[in-house]
Write a protein that binds this DNA or RNA. Sequence first.
DNA 1: CCGATATCAGTTTAACTGAGATAA
DNA 2: CTTATCTCAGTTAAACTGATATCG
Lengths: 153, 153
Amino acid sequence: MPQQHSTRPPAGVPSMMYLIKQVELAAKGHLDQLVAPFGVTGVQYTALTVLARNPGMTSARLARNSFVRIQSMAQTIAGLEERGWIVREADPSSRRQRRISLTESGRALIHSLQEPLEALEHDMFADFEGEEVEAFAEYLQRLRLRLGGSHPH
Amino acid sequence: MPQQHSTRPPAGVPSMMYLIKQVELAAKGHLDQLVAPFGVTGVQYTALTVLARNPGMTSARLARNSFVRIQSMAQTIAGLEERGWIVREADPSSRRQRRISLTESGRALIHSLQEPLEALEHDMFADFEGEEVEAFAEYLQRLRLRLGGSHPH
DNA sequence: CCGATATCAGTTTAACTGAGATAA
DNA sequence: CTTATCTCAGTTAAACTGATATCG
């Protein structure tokens, strides 16, 4: 039954998604600002850190891990390769796949940015209690798993 | 099947921002999928709901509220106007500003999408306790305020 | 003159789709 | 034959910058 056009505000329907988007947008702004002087975007840098933690990854696997299409990730990877931060080598056991590894230059980039980025995150959560940061991270993890379940192909 | 657990140490520098981005990306996918049949994007729709809750807003004010540039919001607003979901009327007390209000069509759109969107959010947080959802929302609010403090001009 | 609003025009990031070659 | 990976090519959404006119 269609309610009358009450002046009642439609409550914050998409409030959570709106909030998440705004936080992401604001955080991206800070991240980009910090890493830009190094000639890297926030997306490129985060991809690089994932690759640093997972040596030998393929582009396709990284794409699935990040919930983007293979082609989207390929573009990001191409940028990293072009700048010389990564190399892709043919895997002898699977000539189709190209395994990614960081160059010295890539490792140096991560090293240079590690401290400023930790400071940025520390600042982001300056008014959080220690356990609140962990709780927030845990909520994000849960959402990531739940929402990521239904990714298109 | 390819449910892998990552090699090991989850610790990483930009882990929080990476998580936030992934959650936002996944949530956006679900939102867009839901609202697309109505000819609206997720960004357009969320802007519309903000306008519904704040009648008489200007584009510039909405932009500041959303942490985007005036020009970026103007583009979103233009899309909403083009589709007939909003109208912009000259304010007699300030001939520069154009106050935005929803049309019947715009209100109908919000009404049509309210229930499915509530269902989507409910589903997102299905494995959250009630107080956890509130805590998560509160964390996001805090981050929004803290990060939004340093928005460019 | 200055600041805020709005607009016009162009750019960039980073996602997307579709098509096709090749290897497992 | 099927599926996954990779690549090429083009598209879109949604942010951005810069410049300009006008109102208060």
